[in-house]
Design a protein around this nucleic acid. Sequence first.
DNA 1: CCTTGTGTTAATTGAGTGTGAACAGCTCCC
DNA 2: GGGAGCTGTTCACACTCAATTAACACAAGG
Lengths: 225, 225
Amino acid sequence: MTESFLVFPDPAPPDIVRQLDFDGYQWRAVSSVEQLVEAEPEEGWTGAIVDITDNSEKAWALCRELRRRDVPVEPLLILASGSQLDELAEFDELFDEFMVTPFHSKELEARVRHLLWKAGRGARPELVTYGDLVLNLETYQAVLDGRPLDLTYMEYELLRFLAAHPGKVFSREALLSQVWGYEYYGGARTVDVHVRRLRSKLGEEHASLIQTVRSVGYKLGQGRW
Amino acid sequence: MTESFLVFPDPAPPDIVRQLDFDGYQWRAVSSVEQLVEAEPEEGWTGAIVDITDNSEKAWALCRELRRRDVPVEPLLILASGSQLDELAEFDELFDEFMVTPFHSKELEARVRHLLWKAGRGARPELVTYGDLVLNLETYQAVLDGRPLDLTYMEYELLRFLAAHPGKVFSREALLSQVWGYEYYGGARTVDVHVRRLRSKLGEEHASLIQTVRSVGYKLGQGRW
DNA sequence: CCTTGTGTTAATTGAGTGTGAACAGCTCCC
DNA sequence: GGGAGCTGTTCACACTCAATTAACACAAGG
């Protein structure tokens, strides 16, 4: 997984990007909210570093936008001059860290590292992921390629079970007893139909996520050889 | 609730305590791990501010001890000189924030405030917000779109609980035990009815704020990731 | 005694789920 | 190579049961 930071404004402050480059982080500078979408990398932003010294109003607007999204950009680092420190009090909810200019180059390095460390083992929601598929167990939301899937209860449970054991093949009977929770009564077709509905909701390009293993059952993804 | 900070070492750095006093925070200085217990206030420590410039080894030992406890002291602020920044990398798990000496007095104020805000017990009026919904926990008032809602006690408590965990799905049983505070007696429908009353008071346009997740429970809004 | 808040019960509704049957594709064997 | 026999896919329909809704019962407080 590559780290990719958003930097504001554009052109980016030279002392920032020098240190980011030095530490081997990817970054892209944006100068307005509008540029957010086009500049965003495939995997989304790892975090954002926003310099509020020149245009704080625009900067806070950007931060607000980043926090408002479906998948909020979490680690937000703010740069402020000493005289702007009071201003921070009004926007506590819009950032995680801040740093006062001028700064040690080592300080930026340390803050970015610590931010990533916290993001890595902070109290994050329970997720089940497989590739571009993300299941949030707390909100019962499923997202594929960043686009939310509208799944019913059973569809969600089935997908969750398969995604929890990627690559492993489950017989219909196994799925019935593990996902549905009762003994195999009569309808093995039930599983097929639910798989079909799931595939159609996954969309044509991702329908192959759930693979059928002839005479055996179903599995999610390729697994390993 | 009074805020009470632990400060290391003892005697405490004068520029620290000057600012803490100025901002109206309680504090007690300790110089060793042994003094931790006797110096601890009734309600426990709100947080800790540890200066590692003079004796970093002892300082880290103290931090480790604070994190090891049953109820870890969460907000840990570290003071380091510029030359110690590299050292931080080894102890990411032992602190939440750090600050480089020498520092703006305003910076300390801002960091402590932000730390408290993140810990969820800011000094300012406690608010729970989600989008256009604002719940004032002190006045027991609920406001939606600037328009005050006339909620009953139970309605308020339910909405408050849901809003405190936006996006997370709660089963009726969970809501009964967490909001009502007793074990599931017989009436799971109770929750439904309260949700219905809430929704009608939220108004047609915002009724969808509380979402039902079929076969699971209810949640507020779409939730964050 | 009326008003207001809260919990219960019961009827209604509809999304979600299961089922059977038709269809398509593959495999095996003569 | 070409049926026969499996196996998986797809469709349409029926039904179940969870959520909604309305109406009622009860307690507390003014």
